[in-house]
């Protein structure tokens, strides 16, 4: 069981700072969390975002692998639905920042 960080924008940075301490952090960007600058993503974490939150904000391309490369980040954001999020919640400890 790892730690699953649920991140919104308002004070999501506090959560990402803690996730940076965590060797196996899993981050999920919820609603306005997708607006957080990718520069703040923890370098070792797996990053997910809710697909419909990303799409309705017109950010699908912005969080793509190419965009990450523009920030010199070696990772991309994987888009998931709520069913996959529930699986992640069931498999991990939830760290709430949303």
């Amino acid at each position: 069981m790892g730690n699953l960080y649920l991140i919104n924008k308002e004070y999501g940075e506090n959560g990402l700072n803690l996730a940076s301490q965590d060797k196996e952090a899993i981050v999920v960007l919820l609603h306005d969390g997708v607006y957080i600058s990718p520069k703040l993503y923890p370098s070792k974490a797996k990053i997910y975002a809710i697909k419909q939150d990303v799409e309705k904000r017109g950010l699908s391309g912005k969080l793509s692998a190419k965009y990450m490369v523009a920030f010199s980040l070696p990772k991309h954001v994987e888009y998931i639905d709520y069913y996959r999020l529930v699986d992640l919640i069931a498999e991990n400890k939830v760290i709430n920042f949303a």
Binding site: L30, H31, D32, I50, D81, Y82, Y83, L85, V86, D87, I89, A98
Partner: peptide
Amino acid sequence: FENWETTCNIAKAALDK
């Protein structure tokens, strides 16, 4: 705010599973 909707979406998916 969107929180109620996210809560319902997660809870519904959880109940469905």
